[in-house]
Design a protein around this nucleic acid. Structure first.
Lengths: 355, 355
DNA sequence: AGGCGGGCTGTTAGCGTTAACATAGCAGCC
DNA sequence: GGCTGCTATGTTAACGCTAACAGCCCGCCT
């Protein structure tokens, strides 16, 4: 079946090689390989056989230049290491798979200048669409996106002004809702534990919403603790210990993500604390991981898969050239109370005593 | 600073636009933007200013076609969702960052046909190198890689015959070593818990090595349990429960990855089992996550970061065209006993009684 | 004076493919 | 018989950029 290649292996093959091997013009070969235009069954067979036996792989660079079409979609995200973006990617791939489009991923590590570089690099490959996390970008980045002439979808967040389209949730509202649930459950001495990341705007917005809701109830954060780097689970433990030492009377710990929340939960259980009686906990994201914890952590689903799907859908839906201007899709995360917020609502306005 | 673009926004800019705006030839613009060749400081300034104010982004497609050089390195991995490949990617990016090369990631979901498609797609962009997980590929995939005329590095595994270069660890040996450590610690009724993935060849090889070492000590697996899909932590719990119910006298659980191992550990602790006295546990990978667990799980570091670095180093080191033929780099994973294998070695050959 | 070399800029000819148009062959039909 | 209308194939000219080479200008050396 696989005959040894007659071809000199050092030179890479072109359409011409296939054309010579099959005795038709390059154009016909091109048509066969792209399934475009009418080609007789006999020639088609002959060309395919020639291409296969030579091991010809088309050169998309030349193809893209000639046709002014590129089947790539740029995806720019801040990180790959926290489970949330990989899931968004899965949503994106799911949808793009049937469209002939291919995602190309770039990672910024939460650095705006890095984002600018990655964006520049991506746009220089003239992708037919771009999906980028967040609404906060440098002026130069925004300018590039606006100039690019392709559909742009900013994802994860909708609290702000998108360049073109946007798909995401309102993190401010998510923070607010969580605060309301916590207050409703009767907790009053509430601490926040999060990442030290000036450029994680979504975490920042959640905290803002959270504090706003507290303020509305006449409360303020009892304590706050930040970390950066290291194993999130371990950091969750350490931060929790620190907060509990420093502010022994806290009765609720709100974590900026589930991973440190899980660490905190494990710590509290180790210490024999009554969760959620003596102390309540909540995280953010709804990562699958949580299902295996000794107790289900309260959290809020960030709709990651759905965001990826919707964003890809927008890109795939826009016919090339038909940039019609942005649409904004707001998804609503659902609160999962889990088993770390007590269900009973004590008489409102009256702070419950610790047991 | 940012003047409104005089340019009609529907047309995308070319070198010619910048050339006209700055009054020099396209070639000179090209030279300025690539920092190649001599250009007077005055012209350079003028060109850069023009490019900036127009918002020009070079077209790498045309550039790559003309120069026959592409600064992309294909990276093909089976999955993004289990923490291990993202870390490999980090290692790759770290090294490539300073070389002007850029990784482009493709994901196969452990499907050989998908790998073939992704590979074809990647090669059609004529990358200057390829990093691909595993040594097992379809015939067609191997043929494509051999034809491609670029450096290929197969990563993660070295138990097999690479197409070109390889960087990884011996999973067979890793399994063997773990088995030896377990036996040395006096455990005798040993079960295996892993993923049901016919195409995860590395997990398979670890198990083979593990069983070989058991056999050498006159032992066989007391039980085995497989899963697929779902939250790994939760699955770890469920599988552990199943094994303990079915084979109550097991005294060691060997997991194919740390995540399910962590689930198992949490389950055992929940059940009040004496770990590592009554029962020992071990996983594989050395994920950072483990640091936050109530007890440090025994595991074996898979050298993920290092593999990424070394693979990228090979690609970056090979001068274009100078495909000199493969080198194989074997890394040695180190066993981390953690706190879930007992340290004391009872009299060899004598199975210890459960407490 | 004439020639040489170095710094700077321009010209020409592709890179491998595809869009658009041209052509060949052939059947059908008045 | 010539015209129409189709199918199957070929030809030509880009696509936007860069390699390679060709100039030009000017200072400096012999």
């Amino acid at each position: 079946m696989t005959r040894p290649p007659t071809q000199d292996p050092r030179r890479t093959l072109t359409l011409r090689d296939v054309s010579e091997a099959s005795g038709v013009s390059e154009m016909t070969v091109s048509r066969v390989l792209r399934n475009r235009g009418d080609v007789s069954e006999a020639t088609r067979e002959r060309v395919l056989e020639a291409a296969r036996s030579l091991g010809y792989v088309p050169n998309k660079i030349a193809g893209a230049l000639a046709s002014q079409r590129v089947n790539l979609v740029g995806v720019i995200i801040p990180s790959l290491s926290n489970m949330v973006f990989p899931e968004v990617l899965t949503g994106i791939s799911d949808v793009l798979e049937d469209t002939g489009l291919q995602p190309v991923v770039g990672v910024t590590n939460y650095q705006p200048e890095r984002e600018e570089t990655v964006l520049y690099e991506m746009l220089s490959w003239r992708p037919s669409g771009l999906i980028i996390a967040g609404l906060e970008h440098t002026d130069a980045s925004r300018a590039m996106m606006m100039q690019a002439g392709i559909p742009i979808v900013e994802i994860m967040d909708i609290d702000g002004e998108p360049v073109d389209s946007a798909v995401g949730i309102s993190h401010r509202r998510a923070g607010r809702q969580m605060a309301e649930a916590i207050i409703a459950a009767g907790y009053r001495r509430i601490a926040f534990l999060g990442t030290q990341m000036p450029n994680d705007h979504r975490a920042r917005k959640r905290l803002e919403g959270f504090e706003a809701a507290l303020a509305k109830a006449g409360l303020a954060l009892a304590d706050r603790e930040f970390y950066s780097g290291g194993s999130a689970l371990l950091k969750g433990r350490e931060m929790t210990e620190a907060v509990l030492k420093r502010t022994p009377d806290v009765d609720f710990l709100y974590y900026s993500n589930d991973m440190i929340g899980a660490g905190g939960l494990l710590y509290c259980l180790d210490q024999g604390l009554d969760v959620p009686g003596r102390i309540g906990l909540a995280g953010f994201n709804g990562v699958e991981l949580l299902d295996g914890l000794p107790r289900q952590l309260a959290t809020m689903d960030a709709c990651r898969l759905e965001i990826g799907r919707a964003a890809a859908g927008i890109i795939a839906g826009k016919r090339p050239g038909g940039v019609i201007g942005g649409e904004v899709i707001e998804l609503t995360p659902k609160l999962q109370l889990g088993a770390t917020i007590r269900a009973v609502t004590p008489e409102p306005g009256k702070a419950p005593a610790a047991p």
